[in-house]
Every structure is written in structure tokens, then in C-alpha cells.
Simulated scan of single mutants.
Amino acid sequence: MATYKKKYKPEGKKAEQQVEEMDSTTAEVFNTLDETASKSEQWIEKNSKALFGGLLAVVVVFLVFLGYNKYIVAPNELEASNELAFPRKYFDEAATAGSGIDSLLNLGLEGADGNYGFLDIAEAYSGTNAGNLANYYAGISYLQMKQYDKGIAYLGKFDSDNAVLNAVALGAIGDAFSDIDQQGDALEYYEKAANVEHNEFTTPLFLFKAGQTAMLLKEYDKAVAMFSEISEKYTTSEQGRDIDKFINAAKYAKN
């Protein structure tokens, strides 16, 4: 490789020596670059099969991922969503029925006439949104039937990107623990539900339940804090209308 030449004439031996040193250094740099490039080329040539195989593997994984989503995940999501319509009908009927609620809820849970219920859908389509939602319906159904352990178990499997629905599920677990007189656990879940997302509906509702539960546990400072947050931030909510009397009651109990 040609070395870099100066375009000016050096003056004196010292200057000439400096130029020669610069030329020598430049040559060394370019020679080093040549050697590095040559080694890189040799390495690539030597490992070309492995590199190509690695690239091919990445492409194959990407194509498999696209195919899996298109031909397996999407059809499963649609199928699971269609299956959910049958038990949902009985769940909705139970919400407005004056009697026979348990039988309707059981039909929703177990299914009938060859149709899946919530339990089947939750198991058979566990990786789908509809399968996840089936856990929620199953959990609420069991709570309405006062089968609290099962209700808590199914609601514990539910996880949604919908913050309000997530809060309601956590709050329902809190209700279940409260009903079986596990107030410490109830308070924990009410607090979780209140903090999922701050909004005018779920936050004051579960802050209020948390405050009431804290009163039962004689955690009066926490009760004051919960009720005060409603007073400061959610005065227009249903819970905020008479919240001052609850704050005063908690302060009185504390003293």
C-alpha cells in the first residue's frame, strides 16, 4: 500500500526527520488496518457457513412466529370468542333473575348441550383473551354462589390490559376475603384495586372499602388516609358525598 507523502519541502534536517517519522507512523497505521481487514475477511470466510446458518435461523424463527400468529393464534382467538357467547348468556340472565340464580350460574360454568362453559374455555383456550376473560366470569360466578375459594382462585388467574376490569377483579377478591372474615387479605386487595388506575369510579369505591376494612382492623391512621384521599380527590364521587363523617369517625376512634 502506498504511503502518504507530504506536499511541502521540509526545512532543515530536524524538520526532515519529523516528516520521515510521520511517514513511518502513517505507514504503520495503514499496515495495521490492512492486517485487521485481512484477518476479518479470513474470519468471515472461515465462518461463513455458521454466519449464514445463524441468519437463516433468525429468518426461520421470524417466519414461524408470523405463521403461528396468523394460522394458530388468530383462529383460536376467534373460536374462543365464539365459544364465550353461550355461557355469557346464562351469566347475564343470572344478573337479572329473581330466583334460580345458582342453576343459571352453573350452566354458565359447566356448559350444556355440547357447548363449553367458562371452565372449559378457560382451560381449552388458556392462551387467548377469551380464555383469560373466562377466568373472570368463572371467578365472579363462584363468588355469587358463595364458593369463595374457587372464586378467588379463578380471579387470581385473570389479568387484563383494561385497568377498570383489572381493578374490579382485584376488588372482587377483596370482597371474597371480607366475606370469609380474612380482613387483612381483604384490605390488601382493596388497596391494590384502588391503585390500578386513578379514576372517578373504581378508585374512590375501593379506597372507601379499604377505609372501612382498616376500621375493622383498628388501623385508624390508614382509615383516615383512605377517607381523606377520597375527600381531597374524589369529592364528586358517590363515596365522596358524606366522606367527612367517616373521616371524623376514624379520627375519633383513633383518639
Rank of each mutant, 00 (worst) to 15 (best):
M1F: 12
Y4Q: 10
K6S: 12
G12W: 10
G12P: 09
K14A: 12
E16T: 14
Q17N: 15
Q18N: 13
E20G: 09
D23H: 10
T26I: 15
V29P: 08
T32W: 12
E35T: 15
S38T: 15
S40E: 04
F52G: 06
G54N: 09
G54E: 05
L55H: 02
L55F: 11
A57R: 04
V60Y: 01
V61E: 03
F62S: 03
F65D: 08
F65K: 03
F65P: 03
F65E: 04
Y68W: 10
E77S: 04
S81N: 06
N82I: 02
E83P: 01
F91V: 01
E93S: 09
A94E: 00
A94F: 01
A97W: 01
G98K: 11
S99D: 07
S103P: 04
S103Y: 09
N106L: 09
N106F: 02
L109V: 08
D120Q: 14
E123T: 12
S126C: 07
T128F: 01
N129I: 05
A134R: 03
A134I: 07
Y136V: 00
A138S: 04
I140M: 03
I140E: 01
I140S: 00
Y142V: 02
K150C: 01
A153Q: 02
A153H: 01
Y154F: 08
Y154R: 03
L155F: 02
S160M: 02
D161Q: 11
D161A: 10
V168R: 00
A169V: 00
G171V: 03
A172C: 04
A176Y: 01
S178N: 13
D181L: 12
D181I: 06
D185V: 02
L187W: 09
A194M: 09
V196K: 12
H198C: 02
N199E: 09
P204Q: 08
P204G: 09
F208S: 08
A210T: 08
Q212S: 06
A214Y: 12
A214Q: 13
L216E: 14
D221G: 13
K222D: 15
A223V: 10
S228R: 05
K233C: 02
Y234V: 09
T236Y: 08
S237L: 07
Q239N: 07
G240I: 08
I243V: 10
I243N: 03
D244K: 12
N248S: 13
A250T: 06
K251S: 14
A253H: 05
K254V: 09
K254D: 14
